[in-house]
Design a protein around this nucleic acid. Structure first.
Length: 266
DNA sequence: AATGGGACCTGCGCGC
DNA sequence: TGCGCGCAGGTCCCAT
């Protein structure tokens, strides 16, 4: 569930709290989340390193270390970072020299931790498309040309545009007034422009409100993000549309649960 | 090129 | 109250 706004929230909060801290121990309660290198080497590569900087690329966190290595974290759906942590339900706990700790939790074990020498060469990161804030309206219109896919799966295609997942794709399409099953090539110039604006606005507002706490996502402190209160369609099946009062529908598009207003989105 | 399905996992909410 | 089931979502992989 953590999408660009949630990961950016965590990035900012990590930047304010753990930069400058030295890792003195790594407690591995479940090695499954550590994808590379093997757990012992992973641990050895982190001990004594100081956190220099926290970066983000799309939904991926990149923690730059003083030993010139990078801790790459993809939270997938249920990954959480908690600071200060108590280690109670953590899969991995990073212990700092000042006796505080950063917990990495992940109920479903889909998340991934990697310790790498060059994060920009990390395959998943290499294949990512641009983020919404890195392109112009003209760029976006060009990208949509010749695309025959349904628009919602396309917005969630990380190699096309990166950072948008199921929740924000739904909210963006509602704001743009576009049905999630429309094919990209069927969009008019005006609709493409509206979609671009909606995409940028929704992402910006969601960051402003520290993301959406549905399911597992929480901020670094464990507090929820507030953007749920501004959701217009996501998880609102059968509730009235905030604009026209028509019941919000839930359908499946590209294998994913998809919420939309059948009247506002054509 | 586009689409659909299954796999990875576990916790939750539902119906009986 | 208890149990089994389907579902959730990010990404990859395979088949058509």
């Amino acid at each position: 569930m953590p999408e660009l706004p949630e990961v950016e929230t965590i990035r900012r909060e990590l930047s304010e709290t753990v930069v400058g801290k030295r890792i003195v121990n790594v407690i591995i309660n479940n090695p499954k989340v550590i994808r590379q290198p093997p757990a012992e080497k992973f641990k050895a590569g982190l001990i004594n390193a100081v956190i220099k900087e926290v970066l983000r690329r799309a939904k991926v966190l990149v923690i730059a270390l003083s030993n010139n290595k990078f801790l790459v974290i993809h939270l997938k759906m249920t990954g959480q970072l908690i600071y200060p942590g108590d280690g109670k339900k953590s899969r991995v706990t990073f212990c700092f020299a000042d006796k505080t700790a950063l917990d990495f939790n992940d109920a479903r074990l889909f998340a991934e931790l990697h310790l790498v020498d060059d994060w920009q060469k990390f395959p998943f990161i290499k294949q990512l498309g641009p983020e919404p804030q890195d392109i112009t309206k003209e760029d976006f219109k060009k990208m949509l040309e010749e695309k025959k896919t349904q628009i919602k799966p396309l917005l969630m295609d990380q190699s096309f545009i990166s950072g948008i997942g199921n929740l924000y794709a739904a909210e963006i399409l509602f704001r743009a007034g576009i049905h999630p099953k429309r094919s990209a090539q069927s969009l008019t110039e005006k609709e493409k422009e509206k979609l671009f604006d909606a995409m940028r606005e929704v992402i910006r507002e969601a960051i402003k409100y520290h993301g959406s706490s549905v399911d597992q996502y929480v901020r670094l402190s464990g507090r929820p993000g507030d953007y749920v209160r501004y959701h217009k369609v996501y998880d609102r099946a059968n509730q009235p549309c905030v604009v026209c009062k028509t019941a919000i529908k839930r359908i499946t598009v590209g294998g994913r649960g998809t919420y939309f207003c059948p009247r506002c989105q054509q």
